[in-house]
Design a protein around this nucleic acid. Sequence first.
DNA 1: TAAAAAATGAGGCAGACATTCCATTCCAAG
DNA 2: CTTGGAATGGAATGTCTGCCTCATTTTTTA
Lengths: 288, 288
Amino acid sequence: MSLDRATMDERVPRDFETLRATILDRRESLPKRIAQIAAYALDNPDDIAFGTAASIAASAGVQPSTLIRFAQQLGFDGFTSLQQVFRERLRERNSSYDERLQALRAKAEGAAGHRAIFDGFVAAASTSLNDISRTLDDTHLEDAISLLAKAETIYVLAKRRSYPVASYIAYALGKLKIRNQLIESAAGLNAEMIAFATPADAVIAISFSPYAPATIEEARSISEQGVPIVAITDSSFSPLAQFAKVWFEVAEADFAGFRSLSATMALAMALTVGVGEKRRDTGRKRKG
Amino acid sequence: MSLDRATMDERVPRDFETLRATILDRRESLPKRIAQIAAYALDNPDDIAFGTAASIAASAGVQPSTLIRFAQQLGFDGFTSLQQVFRERLRERNSSYDERLQALRAKAEGAAGHRAIFDGFVAAASTSLNDISRTLDDTHLEDAISLLAKAETIYVLAKRRSYPVASYIAYALGKLKIRNQLIESAAGLNAEMIAFATPADAVIAISFSPYAPATIEEARSISEQGVPIVAITDSSFSPLAQFAKVWFEVAEADFAGFRSLSATMALAMALTVGVGEKRRDTGRKRKG
DNA sequence: TAAAAAATGAGGCAGACATTCCATTCCAAG
DNA sequence: CTTGGAATGGAATGTCTGCCTCATTTTTTA
């Protein structure tokens, strides 16, 4: 009988997240002083990890014995076992971002089956986001948004691997009620579409090595019509860069031969929403 | 004179990096046992942070007194002060992943101009990747890949916001020479396309709330033909889930009203490449 | 090779530690 | 208001801690 209860209570939280959930779950039913410690523990987990029972108790404003009762109430056999969980958290919290990425890559190598592939792509995406977050030039961003915000129609130009980004931009611009034209290759009417563009419009062109010849060709011809181009590409030597008024260099990490799109995606979203916001602002100013 | 030396030696390393540098610097001139501890300390910093002098000494294969001598040689007045440095390291590794995300979000709020928007999308993407990395079920992944690998043709079904992912899957499947059919809404021939699908085929369907009615309708009719569906959606209550043989719940973070696609993208890439690998493997087996 | 110096091992000690126990206080049910 | 039980505070306890000391071994110097 008492064994039954003991067995039930022995579902001791072994990782910090479970512990946290358990505490939050029982919060209402905890006695005052125990609740006081519970709150302190969740607010200052590092102190629990490093402190002694006495020092923690003093910081939390309770007696050491209460601390131990708290631990026991959670199913631990004493403060020390509770503390282990808080220490594990610090160990496993794979600390610095770079270390985390390394761990993710290691995991991708070590993981069994197709999980490894998935981990690899997550690692590639994280790396790419990290890189672009460091390297993106604020001025370029501002310039690109100004340029695009002034355009009557925004043409979106991308093929193959970049096409998903282009289709997302088109979708988002549409949702923001910004006139845009996605230049698809399917219909074979690209040349005609491009012919409509004027210097009052603008282009977002996306292309990565190996650059789709069609994209380059279309970018060239559209720039010769005096239409300003914002380019997203992967190197300063990219043929796109020479046609562009503003261009972004985005270095995407790859895995299994497939490059991530996460950084490009984030940039695309920022451009789109940035343009939307800029238009709202200037529109408001004109009215006011 | 002895005071002079004392003063010099009192340049105690207070942060881990300095300490590390000091140890590496003096490595050559350290006595054997001390060097043994030094190596252990740099290799297992977490153990130093949490262990007791006795336990660490045992792990490193030396006497506790040697550990203390090591600390003193570095200018600390005992093992405890040395340990503080290792503990600080764990605390101050401010760049824990979660904290980094928080910092990024804070940056997004604080940053001037459109940089804030960009940071916001990067943060959303990182959060999403982090979440899916924790929550993705390996078994589902294996099941989905097996299912798709057996398909004669893989149909890819997605509208609106999910469409970029679908177009990427189609692109990647094509590159891997896997027969696939992207079901687009433009041409209005979806019903006819769907009619071709047989139980020997398979579908990847992607839809998030608010679910595009067309996607749901198409998923229903295709599942009634006995074609197995792998669904990527955002909740267990999603209408897609009920038609699917395997389904993934992907929670994407959002910013400025636009949800990230990074987690969905990573999953899509893993599925695609996973299928490609599985087919190569089974193909090889059949031949051999 | 002999002597001196440095390094090491091991036992011992004082203090701090987590924990337990018991007296007291609080609170709710009757 | 009384009473029973839970919650709490604080001191007692035995273990384990870091650190020191001293005997022994190893290395260096002459």
